[in-house]
Design a protein around this nucleic acid. Structure first.
Length: 272
DNA sequence: ATGACTGTCGTAGACAGA
């Protein structure tokens, strides 16, 4: 038995509940981490998701914006929510599940997008993004270093040259600027995280998880970015046997602008 | 041509996404 974990920026869970159902039917991940749910907890379509087999729901929503949720067939032994930058934003939730390799903590993050201008002096949203990453770094290098963990989500940064359609043209575009890439590396180092997607797909190959709505020929022009990530602590990273970017979902009717990413782990969770 | 868009709230158009 394996454990499959998916991350997907759904861009409104209420508008795209049918797409979540389609994804469950196609790939049936055991744990599905959603970002940009865009609704308060009492508006969350819990009943429809429980029908899909996701009996265990960890939800951190807010009105209109942001919001994360972790849906699971596996029971949680713990749920934790952390607020960043004292803004009251719903951008993180962590669950813990029991496996034959011991407990695994699964962080689900939605990092701020950062607005248009990549200068913290003139753009408060960019400053917020950098502050958020700093807080992540400080927290992760604290008490979070010694347990088995996975960190997924829309981190809104494409770190490598082949994580964007044009490294040169995006160097000054928020999501691929050197300062962001550097800050993301600090977060990664702080938790000793392995980039599981790049561990399975070499950096010489292009990988994207997001394509703008503004391009009607998004598939043909393929001007994407890898904004969504699956990281794991070293021992768990060794158990990741497959990675898939489910690009099919980006071509569905009324899609999210992000595609799901799936990791398959050789980890036992049933009948422990 | 990095835009030719999209969701929420609320009922027009601002705001956010990235």
């Amino acid at each position: 038995m394996t454990l499959t974990i998916a991350t997907w920026n759904i861009n409104s869970v209420r508008s795209r509940i049918k797409l979540v159902e389609q994804f469950e039917s196609d790939r049936a991940p055991d744990i599905l981490c959603l970002q940009e749910t865009k609704c308060m907890n009492d508006q969350f379509p819990s009943a429809a998701l429980k029908k899909l087999g996701y009996e265990h729901l960890a939800i951190n929503g807010q009105k209109s914006y942001h919001g994360v949720a972790t849906l699971s067939r596996v029971p949680f032994t713990d749920v934790e929510i952390r607020e960043f930058c004292n803004k009251g934003d719903a951008r993180h939730i962590a669950v813990t599940v029991d496996t034959d390799k011991g407990p695994i903590k699964i962080h689900n993050f939605y990092v701020p997008a950062g607005g248009d201008v990549p200068d913290p002096e003139v753009n408060d949203k960019f400053r917020h993004k950098l502050d958020f990453l700093n807080e992540m770094t400080e927290w992760l290098q604290g008490e979070e270093t010694n347990c088995n963990a996975i960190l997924v989500g829309d981190l809104n940064i494409a770190p490598h040259e082949n994580d964007v359609w044009s490294h040169k043209q995006l160097l000054k575009v928020v999501s691929h600027t050197p300062i962001e890439v550097e800050q993301l590396a600090k977060v990664q180092n702080a938790g000793n995280w392995v980039d599981s997607v790049r561990n399975h797909i070499p950096t010489s190959e292009r990988v994207y998880s997001w394509w703008s709505y503004r391009s009607p020929n998004w598939a043909k022009s393929d001007k994407g970015r890898r904004l969504d990530h699956i990281w794991a602590t070293p021992h768990i990273a060794d158990q990741v046997s497959a990675i898939e970017v489910y690009k099919t979902a980006r071509a569905w009717e009324k899609p999210s602008d992000h595609a799901p990413i799936i990791a398959k782990l050789d980890v036992e969770w049933r009948n422990l």
